[in-house]
């Protein structure tokens, strides 16, 4: 069973088409990069997958379910902007996630926070931007979900934080679950990915494995991306 499946998926905002007939599947155990320039439809697709938007045409499913209340218990979502309540302490955030999500692995989250020397009494508001991003990712990856949707998890953070985030994603790998990472920072993530989907103006331009691209083209995914999307 595919973790995520789209068939001829379309979404419009007024007259503007955001997605125009997307079809692809994501299998369990895969880490997939959703790569495209700004405005290509990455965030729209992620919002459709977790039921924050509804399709205008076509079909999208998570573990054979239309996105909705039931599928949301299987999806762990990292939004583009930090969305954790800033007034909470780290400890309160752990309680909050534990109350909200039955699949939240509190010990795993506590261990990861411990590695970062984050004390349970530390308040989110007083953390740096990079630390907030790390804390939010820890919360998202500590759920035993079937599908992790990470919207720009490494945008706007320093290279060391980027490395931390990527190694947390690798360390949380679960062969039963899939991870979809949207980003335009390809050089940083391509080693972490199984497959990439190039998306532009709401259409898929290419879907391939990372090593498939390197083998066939003799270049990195980053280099190919620059070639395909040359301005």
């Amino acid at each position: 069973m595919s973790v995520l499946e789209c068939k001829e998926l379309c979404k419009r905002y007024g007259r503007t088409a955001a997605l125009e007939g997307l079809s692809f599947t994501v299998e369990p155990g895969r880490i997939v990069g959703l790569l495209g320039p700004n405005g290509s439809g990455k965030t729209t697709l992620i919002k459709l997958a977790n039921g924050l938007l509804t399709p205008d045409a076509g079909y999208i499913s998570v573990c054979d379910m239309a996105p909705g209340r039931e599928s949301r218990s299987l999806v762990s979502y990292l939004p583009e902007r930090t969305a954790i309540p800033l007034w909470m302490s780290a400890g309160q955030l752990l309680d909050f996630y534990g109350d909200f999500y039955t699949d939240f692995r509190r010990e795993a989250a506590e261990e990861m926070l411990g590695h970062l020397n984050i004390h349970p009494r530390q308040v989110i508001k007083q953390m740096s931007k990079g630390t907030r991003e790390k804390v939010q990712l820890i919360m998202v990856m500590s759920r035993a979900a079937k599908l992790y949707l990470l919207d720009e998890p490494i945008g706007g953070v320093d290279p060391a934080t980027r490395d931390y985030i990527l190694s947390t994603i690798i360390g949380s790998y679960n062969p039963e679950a899939a991870v979809v990472i949207s980003t335009h920072l390809i050089a940083d993530v391509e080693k972490v990915l199984d497959e990439v989907i190039f998306i532009n103006q709401g259409r898929i331009m290419l879907q391939s494995s990372v090593d498939g691209i390197r083998e066939e083209k003799g270049m990195s995914v980053d280099a190919l991306f620059r070639e395909v999307f040359k301005c």
Partner: peptide, 14 residues
């Protein structure tokens, strides 16, 4: 595999 993948910063399947 997981330890090596994390250390090398690569996909575990790779």
């Amino acid at each position: 595999v997981r330890e090596l993948a994390t250390e090398a910063g690569v996909n575990p399947n790779t």
